[in-house]
Design a protein around this nucleic acid. Structure first.
Lengths: 134, 134
DNA sequence: TAATAAAATTGTAATCATTACAATTTTGTA
DNA sequence: TACAAAATTGTAATGATTACAATTTTATTA
């Protein structure tokens, strides 16, 4: 998928984020690389287009995106946090062999014991061996 | 709940872990404090009984327990990893107000798109406001 | 347009949970 | 008792993330 600058700018504005070059490039990277990247991945993916980019700016940008609700964090069996531009409910499967993280649809979760609790966010993470690593 | 040393020793042996004082005290702490403690919590909970205890030993012990499958790790919106002695499938709810982590039963999860994948572990983490913080 | 304020970006240093590792202590066994 | 293996300890290293102050860029006002 390719996104025009106009689309990216509108996306940011719609989410109450003032556009800047870094923000556009980070957003573009997230939209076009659905690999649940770490901050380091994002940094490496954008540094070529913005050679003066600092890691701090990547963190600043991600944290802003988090606040505005356009990215969610992924805590998997890693020491790095990963980021996902898809904030709709879906599951994540991490392959213990190749390390890849797959999205999968979650239709429903039957649970009990949370009467009176306000649920704001749900995470569903699976671990195992993916189909390519068997 | 209270556990006798004999029960604790048998529990370890059954799981192929050679008993030692530290391992017994850490296990006892985990069984009697179902608060999903961090390594630091465990350290603080055991240091009174073993004044020479080192943090490294807590990590060594937890990592051994993990390998043997008697504790699982919990990655919540925290920088610390938490540990859970209950390895059966259940959900975790983290209250964003008070920070407490609740267990809840998960009956079933309907998902798709993982045909041919081997699923070894499932995590279900919810975030929100608990009933005591409304 | 120039001057000024506000926002964004940068680089360095700090933080802090966890691990690496080597030294020491304890345990089990011959 | 002596020895080998295992467990424990303390210190230093690691590495992702944040704090913070300085600099640069952008927006606003006169």
């Amino acid at each position: 998928m390719e996104f025009t600058n106009e689309e990216l700018i509108n996306f940011l504005k719609k989410n109450d984020i003032r556009p800047s070059n870094i923000r556009l490039k980070v957003l573009k990277y997230l939209l076009e690389n659905r690999i649940h990247p770490s901050a380091e991945d994002i940094y490496n993916g954008v540094i070529d287009e913005i050679p003066t980019l600092s890691r701090t700016s990547v963190y600043n940008t991600i944290n802003l995106f988090k606040e505005k609700g356009i990215v969610s964090e992924l805590y998997l069996d890693d020491k790095e946090v990963r980021y996902d531009i898809n904030t709709k409910l879906h599951g994540h499967f991490k392959c213990e062999e190749c390390g890849r993280v797959y999205d999968f649809p979650v239709t429903s979760i039957l649970h009990s014991g949370l009467e009176g609790f306000v649920i704001k966010k749900k995470e569903i993470n699976y671990y195992g061996v993916c189909i390519n690593c068997q």
